[in-house]
């Protein structure tokens, strides 16, 4: 449904998107993963027809966005980075405007709004002015306007950014549900989001595609994906040595006073670690997740790309 060929965007001297090509098939949910400033938003803006590419082509369905932008735009629902809300309108007024602009007639508009406010958890707020909504609700309204006309293609720019964990879970569930019968491209810089929702990821950094594969195939690349921080009462070097003997552990690094353990995202080494501690008679004072090594992945991928050339 989405095809991108040699897409390039330069702003004066700076290359924001550098010759990228990819495709998203009908019914696929694909994650667009990259740190801030990687070119995700610029790419999505070109996909939706908001920006013209400096070079290259975008196809939405059978439409070339350079020649038949209007027909292409009709197929797309788009949630920009910040939900684009008219602060003086009510939720109902805004969604009506969005649906009518995308070609729905009055009757269909009314029916669809009644549906999406329930889908997006906005049913109790339809007459609230948008300017008075909290960030989480703004994001929901943003999602509602993107799906109100039942587009075949959904392009979501950081749909889970800036909302609380419960809402993140709800949003993920909603996207998964929506993805059953439509094509979705979503961007994020949060690794677990992608592995939870998407079948495939495109990893982008500095305007270039670093990797593109199914989630399960990327596991090698994502070996650094999970990390634990241990605080152990025991001789640091011996502890490192013993921990690195565990099968499930990929690497151990010691940065006083913590040991960091990297392990594959589909493994659970906690039990084995606890056993090792007990066997050696050391005290495990703390064991906690130490965040996601996305930066590490990018560095690694960038390194790999660099070493090829």
């Amino acid at each position: 449904m989405i095809r991108v060929k040699n897409l390039t965007k330069s702003y004066r001297e700076r290359l924001a998107v550098d010759d990228i090509s990819f495709a998203v098939g009908k019914g696929e949910i694909v994650g667009f993963l990259g740190p801030n400033g990687a070119g995700k938003t610029t790419t999505m803006r070109m996909l939706t027809g908001y920006l013209m590419p400096s070079c290259g082509e975008v196809w939405i369905g059978e439409y070339n966005m350079a020649a038949e932008s209007l027909a292409g735009r009709r197929l797309v629902g788009y949630l920009p980075e910040t939900a684009p809300l008219y602060t003086d309108m009510t939720i109902r007024g805004y969604l009506t405007y969005a649906a009518r602009l995308r070609g729905l007639d009055r009757k269909r508009t009314k029916a669809r709004i009644d549906e999406v406010v329930v889908t997006c958890g906005l049913a109790d707020y339809v007459d609230v002015i948008l300017g008075k909504l909290s960030r989480g609700y703004r994001q929901r309204v943003g999602l509602a306007q993107a799906i109100v006309h039942e587009p075949e293609v959904l392009i979501l720019d950081e749909p889970t950014a800036g909302i609380d964990p419960i809402q993140v879970a709800q949003t993920k569930a909603l996207i998964t549900e929506l993805g059953k019968d439509r094509t979705i491209l979503l961007s994020t810089h949060i690794l677990p989001d992608v592995s939870a929702i998407c079948e495939r990821v495109i990893i982008i950094n500095k305007g270039r595609i670093l990797a593109e594969d199914r989630i399960d195939n990327l596991s090698d690349t994502m070996k650094a994906g999970k990390r634990l921080r241990l605080t152990v009462d025991g001789p640091a070097e011996a502890v490192s040595e013993a921990l690195s003997q565990i099968d499930l552990v990929l690497s151990v690094t010691f940065e006083k006073p913590h040991h960091y353990i990297d392990y594959s995202f589909d493994q659970e080494p906690q039990a084995a670690i606890t056993r090792v501690m007990v066997e050696h008679g050391w005290t495990l004072l703390a064991m906690e997740p130490a965040g996601v090594g996305l930066e590490d992945i990018f560095l690694k991928l960038a390194d790999d790309a660099g070493s090829i050339h």
């Binding site: 209007l70 735009r73 009709r74 788009y78 684009p84 008219y86 969005a98 602009l101």
Partner: peptide
């Protein structure tokens, strides 16, 4: 407001 992006990506000339 950022709504221009909303308007310019709608199927409107």
């Amino acid at each position: 407001l950022g709504t221009f992006e909303f308007l310019l990506t709608a199927p409107v000339r």
